[in-house]
Design a protein around this nucleic acid. Structure first.
Length: 239
DNA sequence: CCAGACGTTGTT
DNA sequence: GTCTGG
DNA sequence: CCAGACGTTGTT
DNA sequence: GTCTGG
């Protein structure tokens, strides 16, 4: 799963890493911690505009939603999409052919359960480079108000060995694309076989994770600050 | 996902 | 829009 | 036929 | 314990 993510590189670094330009450069600010349940705007690259980095709302709302109320109920549950079942799910199946996207990130957050307590971890590539998670996107129009909402979801795969160590998320992890597979995900003609050749658990040896403080879920202090990413040791954890 | 509320009456 | 359950 | 759902995670 | 809100 992946409900909390981070993207801390500069606008220039993102544009260089993905060979694309921000549609609205003035809107981009690094996000140290973003909570998907706030449906915040996040940098993505869509199949429709592969040379643009755009801000889409996390939590996919299918085009067929009949009302804003129905959309608000559904989007809570579509922050992630189980890759093994997306070809069958009404919320996602129509996106697979033409509405795949790259969800840009420099790291994401998971919780490890130990005893009765949960401890947050920050997960990155060992290289600390930017990466792209495989996503799907859609556009919803509220027929009452005319409001248009562009949204996306992050595909998940079974956990690799590193993610299994973080108890709370041992079963699932976001689908991270290898750098040389990003363009095929975005623009390829993908049948089921080709789709699942790209959507696999990322190589454990190229990832790292460390525990961080609980600032990330503080309600009294802003969690979107650099300090949220600082390593934090817990006596209760043996690492 | 986690944090925080979870209740009533009456009203600066 | 499309599928399932009654 | 129509009505209603449409989704994810975890269970140390 | 369980639900709501972010």
């Amino acid at each position: 799963m992946c409900y909390h993510s981070s993207i801390t590189k500069s606008r220039e670094e993102l544009e260089a890493a993905f060979d694309a330009r921000f549609a609205e450069p003035q809107d981009y600010q690094p996000i140290f911690h973003g909570n998907g349940f706030t449906f915040l705007r996040w940098p993505v690259i869509t199949a429709e505009h592969p040379k643009l980095i755009q801000g889409y709302h996390w939590g996919l709302i299918p085009f067929w939603c009949k009302s804003r109320e129905a959309a608000d109920e559904l989007r809570v549950h579509t922050l992630n999409a189980v890759s093994e079942t997306v070809f069958e799910k009404p919320s996602f199946k129509h996106c697979i052919r033409q509405k795949r996207c790259l969800v840009l990130s420099s790291g994401f957050f998971e919780w490890r359960t130990s005893g009765k307590l949960k401890y947050p971890y920050f997960v990155t590539l060992k290289s600390r480079e930017l990466f792209a998670m495989a996503g799907l996107y859609d556009r919803f129009t509220d027929q009452q108000t005319g409001e248009v909402i562009d949204t996306f979801t992050v595909l998940t795969t079974p956990a690799n060995a590193l993610m299994e160590k973080i108890h709370n998320s041992k079963k699932r992890m976001p689908a991270i694309l290898k750098k040389d597979q990003e363009q095929e995900w975005l623009l390829g003609e993908l049948n089921k076989t080709a789709f699942y050749r790209l959507i696999t658990p990322y190589d454990t040896n190229d990832m790292q994770a460390y525990s961080i403080s609980k600032r990330i879920t503080s309600r009294s202090e802003n969690s979107n600050v650099p300090e949220v990413l600082a390593p934090h040791h817990y006596e209760a954890l043996n690492d």
